[in-house]
Structure formats: structure tokens, C-alpha cells
């Protein structure tokens, strides 16, 4: 948030998508706003205010977390990956590829969060059942797809390894 407003600031050092950032932020600032407003990484979306929808899911030190539920100050020293950091050298991550191949998205608003949640899940369970995939998405809501093609997208990525 703008410095003219903040009475107190805390310094943070956060690595995002491999790039180190130093910033001074309001103590109350949510990590999602640091990513979106301070760094301009707008691929991480906000869809609710109750930690229900998961549109803001990112990887924080390799774990999928909802960035609306973490203060920027808490992420001091962390390494973060956002949706913008998922493709490497122009090559889509297998989960991104799966979403495209299997029509796993329609409006695309929940999609970055879905991809971040699914990719972290596959790290821990590389060969999941359909049921395990559905339960792994407990924290991510989609209103467009009815989830079936999201399940298929994740199965596609799992098969690709």
C-alpha cells in the first residue's frame, strides 16, 4: 500500500518466482495484495474474504497456501511461486497443460489458484485416484466447470508426470 498512508511499516525480503524483493509494507497488508499491488503480479486472484474460494492460492516454500490468509510480514524470508512463475522457458507446467488440453477452465478466474493447488498436491501424491483429486480441491471453488474437466486436467498432469 502507498507509503503516504502507512504510519508503520515493516521491512520484508521475499523471493517471488526466483526474483528477490525488498519492500517496506504495512503490517496488516495481506500477501495477496503485496503480490498484486506491490509487485503487479495480478495472476493471483481474490474471489472471497473468508479463505473459502482458493483463487489466491500460491506456493510458499513449496506448499500451497491461500495468500489472502497470510500477512506479507509473515512471508519475510520465504520463497514464493505464483501462477506467473509456473511455466519455465516458455514450457507450460504439466498442470497448466492439462487444464488447456482437458478444457479445465471457462472464465479462468479460479484457474490460477486451481493450478497452484493441484501442482502442490501432485508433488505429494503423484498418482492420485479421482476421489483423492476431488478431496484435494476442497479449498478451491469453481463455478463454471462443474469440476469434471478439472479432475481430468489433473489426471492428465499426473499421467505426464
Amino acid at each position: 500500500m502507498s507509503a503516504t498512508v502507512a504510519q508503520n511499516v515493516v521491512p520484508v525480503d521475499i523471493t517471488v518466482n526466483g526474483v528477490e524483493h525488498h519492500a517496506e509494507v504495512e503490517p496488516r497488508q495481506l500477501l495477496v495484495h503485496f503480490l498484486r499491488e506491490t509487485l503487479g503480479l495480478t495472476g493471483t486472484h481474490v474471489g472471497c474474504d473468508t479463505s473459502s474460494c482458493g483463487a489466491c492460492t500460491i506456493h510458499l516454500d513449496g506448499k500451497a497456501v491461500k495468500s489472502c490468509t497470510v500477512l506479507t510480514a509473515q512471508a519475510d524470508g520465504a520463497s514464493i511461486t505464483t501462477i506467473e512463475g509456473m511455466a519455465t522457458d516458455g514450457q507450460l507446467h504439466p498442470v497448466q497443460e492439462g487444464f488447456w488440453e482437458e478444457h479445465g477452465l471457462q472464465c479462468g478466474y479460479c484457474t490460477p489458484g486451481m493450478i497452484m493447488a493441484a501442482s502442490a498436491f501432485l508433488e505429494t501424491n503423484p498418482d492420485p485416484t479421482e476421489d483423492e483429486i476431488r478431496h484435494a480441491l476442497e479449498g478451491n471453488l469453481c463455478r463454471c466447470t462443474g469440476y469434471q474437466n478439472i479432475v481430468k486436467a489433473i489426471q492428465y498432469a499426473a499421467k505426464k508426470g
Partner: peptide, 21 residues
């Protein structure tokens, strides 16, 4: 055929209203 809209949306490059600066 796969949607041509998807590449921007799966990489975080979509431009929604909250993304306008």
C-alpha cells in the same frame, strides 16, 4: 479444438477488472 483463450488464463496473463492499473 482447445480454446485459444486459455494460454493467457492459465499463465496469469488474463486481464480482469481488478487487474487494471
Amino acid at each position: 479444438i482447445k480454446r485459444r483463450e486459455d494460454p493467457r488464463l492459465i499463465t496469469g496473463a488474463g486481464q480482469f477488472i481488478d487487474d487494471l492499473r
